[in-house]
Structure formats: C-alpha cells, structure tokens
Design a protein around this nucleic acid. Sequence first.
DNA 1: ATGAAAGCGCTAACAG
DNA 2: CTGTTAGCGCTTTCAT
Lengths: 351, 351
Amino acid sequence: MTTPAVQVARGGPVTRKDVARYAGVSTAVVSYVVNGGPKKVAPATEAKVQDAIRVLGYRPNAAARALKLGSSETLGLVIPDNSNPFFSQFAHAVEDAAAALGYALVLSNSDGNVAKERRNVRNLAARQVDGVLLASVLFEPDLEVLETADIPAVLLNQERDAPGFNTIGVDLAAGARIAVEHLIGHGHTNIGLAMGTNVSGSLDGREVGWRQALQAAGLPEGPVVYSGFTWPGGYLAGQRLVASVNRPTAIFATSDTQAVGLLRAVHEAGLSIPGEIAVVSFDGSIEAEYSWPPLTTVEQPVAAMAEAAVAALVGATRGEKPQHRIFPTKLNIRQSCGCPWTPSTGVPHGT
Amino acid sequence: MTTPAVQVARGGPVTRKDVARYAGVSTAVVSYVVNGGPKKVAPATEAKVQDAIRVLGYRPNAAARALKLGSSETLGLVIPDNSNPFFSQFAHAVEDAAAALGYALVLSNSDGNVAKERRNVRNLAARQVDGVLLASVLFEPDLEVLETADIPAVLLNQERDAPGFNTIGVDLAAGARIAVEHLIGHGHTNIGLAMGTNVSGSLDGREVGWRQALQAAGLPEGPVVYSGFTWPGGYLAGQRLVASVNRPTAIFATSDTQAVGLLRAVHEAGLSIPGEIAVVSFDGSIEAEYSWPPLTTVEQPVAAMAEAAVAALVGATRGEKPQHRIFPTKLNIRQSCGCPWTPSTGVPHGT
DNA sequence: ATGAAAGCGCTAACAG
DNA sequence: CTGTTAGCGCTTTCAT
C-alpha cells in the first residue's frame, strides 16, 4: 500500500505513454483507470496500471486535459481586497465550495481599481477558467468585459439586477433597516451614519435603509460621513462623527471593518460604547465578534452565498436561466448596541 | 481604435486558425503577432491580424499554450486559513508579486488539516503550476509531497532550515525577545505567554524567545496558556490568564489575531489595558492597528517576504541554489504595552 | 517575411 | 475488455 514511489530516473516528466509502456497496456487503458471510466478495466490490468503509476511517479498533465476537454476545472474570483476580512472570508468560502466540486480557485484583487478589475477579468478569461465570480468595485460592473470574455459569470455582492447575469447579493436596505430599527428600539433619536464609499457614486442600499428606518419612525436624519469601507475609513468617520456639532448617540456603520476603525476613534475620544455612543454594523464577519465591545452586526450568509455562486457556475444550477438571488440577512446581537451582556458560562480557573 | 468587437456568430470559440483564415495569413503569423515574436511581422500584416483578432473576438487558449510550453504561468499558494488576517494579507501580497511577473495565483486553504494540506499540494502539482508557496500547518512540512510533486516550492513562515528547499521566514525567537524585552522595559516582572499551537507539538521560536528574554533579565516565567492562533484561541487564553492564581501584569501573545481575542477577554474581566495588563503581540497585521487599545506588535515584513518567495520561484532568483532566508522583524509601538499615546494631529471638526 | 507541419499529453469514439 | 487513433489549440523549427 505504502510502497515508496521509487522515482525512476528519466528524461522529462512521466507521461501517460510511459505508464502504458511500463504496464504493458495501451494509453487508453491508462486513461480509463486514471479517470475511472468511461470504459471498465479488468481488475488485474487496473492493478498493473496503478502499480506503474506509483512506480513511475506519474501525474496527469492538467493542461493537456484542459485542452482536450475544454475546461480547466478552475474558477476565477475577483474581489476588491483580500486583506479585508469580509472578502477574505468570502474567498475562503468560495474556495471551499469550489473545491467540493473539484474546482481550483484563482484569486485576484482589484484593489478598488476599475482598470485592474477589467484586467483581472480579461486575464481570467484568457486562462480559460470555467467561470468567474466578480465582486465589482463598481456599483454597476462593467458587463461588457464579461460579455466579450464570454465566460459564465456571477456578480457578487450585488443588489441591483443585471439582466442576463447571475447575481448574488443581500437586501442591503432591509439589512440596514433592521440595524437602525434596533437602535431606535434602544431609544436613540439621533442616529448617525458612517457610510462606505465605492468608486461609483450611486446610492447604496444601506444608506437608503438607514433613511427609511428613520423616516418610518418619524426621526430626523443624524449626521452622515462618507469614507472608505476600511479600517482607516471607519476611523476617520468616527473622528468626524464624534466631533460633529450634533453628535449622534448611535451610529450605523456600513461594514464591520469600518465599525472597528470607528470604535477606536470613539474610544480615543474617551466616549463609552454603547453608553455614550452605540454602534451597529454590517457584514457579520468574525472580527465583529472580537472587537471591544463586540459588535452587533447585520450578518450576511457568506457561506450560502458562496455556494450558490459556485453552483450557478459549475454546480447543480449551472446552465439555468440567469437568476438574481437575494439572500436574507439577520441581526447578530452583541454589546455595541446597548444590549445587556450575559457573561459566558464560567471562566476556567487556574493556568 | 475602438471599433466594437463585432461578435461574428460562429460555432464554437474562435481559434487561431479562424483568425489566420480571416486575415489571410498562416497560423504561425498569428502566433507571432500575438506573442510579439519570435519572428518579426510586416506592419501591414500585423494590422490585418490585429483586425481579425478584434473582429472575431479571438482570445488565445491558455490551456493549449500551457501544454505546448510546459508552463501554466500560475503559482499555487497553500495557507492554513485565508480568513485569518495575517494570511489574507500574505495572500494579497503574494498575488501582487505574482501578478507583477504575469503569473496567476491559485489559492487553497488547508484549514489546519494535514491531510488537506497534502491534498492541496498534490492538486496544485497536477495542475502544472510553476511553483507552490506553502505555509504549512506542520512545523516540519511534509517535504515528501513536495519532492514527489517535483515542483519548485518555497516554504513560508518557516524558521527551520529545510535542506534542498527554499525557505522564507522570520526569526521568531528574536522577534519574541524584543517584544518581551519591551515589556520588561516597562517594569513588568510577571509576564505571561499566550502561545498559539500548531498541529505539530514542536517548540515554537516565539516561546523560546519569551523564555530567553525572561531568563536574560533574571525574571521568573509567568503563566503560559496554549491555544489556537485564532480569535477564539486568544479569547480562551485571555480568560485563563486573567483567572490564573498568579495573574500576569503583562502578556505576550503569539499572533495579532490571538491578541485581539485576548483583549476582549481582558476587557470582559474588567481589567484595564495596559494599566492592569499590558499586551504585546506578533505579526504586525493591520488588525493590530485598530483594536482597542491598538496593539504594540512585532511586525513581519509580509510584502518583502512575498516578493522574495515569488522571485525564488519564477523571478530573478529562480534556479539559484535553495536558500534559507530569514527576514528581520521590527517592533511596532502602540498603546497596548503601556507606551504613552500622542493624539493624532487634529481631529477634523464638523460633519 | 511568411508558411507547413510536428507534436505537447490527453480523451474518447471506434474497432477489434 | 483492450488497442488505435484523431485531434483539442498552440508554438516553433525548418523551409521557402
């Protein structure tokens, strides 16, 4: 079973032909045993082939296979920034979903840069990936690249419908509403907004939701500051919000990362959270669970979204009519909103 | 120049042969213009070809190219967990370095699982990647997989020398020492350790460094707790450390992620940081900058390491004798250690 | 300056 | 159950 793979010194890499010769069979048979089909092979022959494979250290050449089959069994993912916890978690989930179907994942970052995003998509297309998942920098991604690339694609993180394209997202406005309503439930009447900015200037659903919730409750709009969906962006927003003439008693931040940066600014200002300023954020990434205080956040079902995206490309739902899928969010209540905290069940004592 | 790519309705995808026919040249010429060589092409002919390419919407098939050339212009990266900020930053840096050289990056997570790590490496090998970067779960990675895979590899995050392999890492013990010495400089005499655990049970350089610094100063070893290099791991460690009979006044945590989790536990215990418990951590990832309080941390030069790793595989230093490269760390001083904080230059006022 | 053609390693239809 | 073989799209040598 564990016969060491005796590397037979040869010229180049071992090909299927070498294996065939060594095993005394045809190359077709080798193919059959390697792929488990499409023809059956006699057990004895199969054993011989397996042996040859092991002895020679044969590894099938994926490029040749891809050429023949017209599929590289590879998916491409384009995200703005893998250093951002939300996207890195997303990428991880996509990798899992892809791997479960035997697909590898090529990752590329667009770094918030439209030109780079286009370049990455084109590059992936040239590499014959079987599909690309695009979390665009743009509110309205450049569909033309995708079209001319002529590759199945799914648009991620996308609220808007893009006819002819698979689209996966979350109801941003609805999510924002439950967040803001929760804050209102805590009695806040001056609720600010730390709004992330994209390249495109379009109105983000989270801003819409914040406004809707306020209106529905007959409350005025608190201060708003626009800055990046990043730690420094949130930090900046926090500093501004804290210093605003009409300082809010609660803030809705449009990403966890932003919220964490904002938390730091509020702490630095010497204000207590949630006492003097409560905060609720968006994404539900793990960093929200370990900030101080832990963030109440609107959770996006990342794993489910990743699975659906991959499935639309190469899984069960492949080939179906392009769909616009909206996933539900849920509010993850922790302490930054002002909800009471029940200490966890017993801190272990001793070292 | 911007003639729209009129998609000519055809059967399958456009191949080089179609372009040749359309342009009235041979397929060789198409190759020459696409690759800019190895032969020169008359300007007039080149124009015709470019035209044909645009009109037909031709995209070269990377699989065929890879088969012919024996190189996929792809690198593989295997890390334990892309959801962990340190690794996701690393992955981003690797992607940048690879892209700069025209290589794509296939990402895979081993999820702290040895079997999965092996599977991923094998899978990458089968895909004819031109090199793999492996941040192993193991203290001593399974070199045999790499060897039998017969692919240039570099071991990341690796302190130990592995003869015959390119290895890139940081002097963990030295880094830990500067961290602990800094804490000692603040007057602490009871310094605990929140030590991350790997799959292998070997001694980690960070633990060694912590011990060395203590010994050199003639200080006793504070309490130690072992747990994952993760947020929950750090949280658990924090709870234990805080509750230990001999509660430390300072803690060295072996990763930023761990430290962030630990911070939460300390806050929950109602202890002030750095007043009652000071903390210094390791990695220098961006999350350390936005925790509360911001973490003093030992920074690893991630970008430089990523570049060196990629260069060893497919860049300038390719083909050179395998090297064991150790990068320097530096202490990034913030507030969690007890150093005074100077407010940043003026908080912007108004919304 | 251009073209013809071999062949990279693999799959699967077809023939035995 | 096994073998022969065409051909996937591309690069490049060798001829013209």
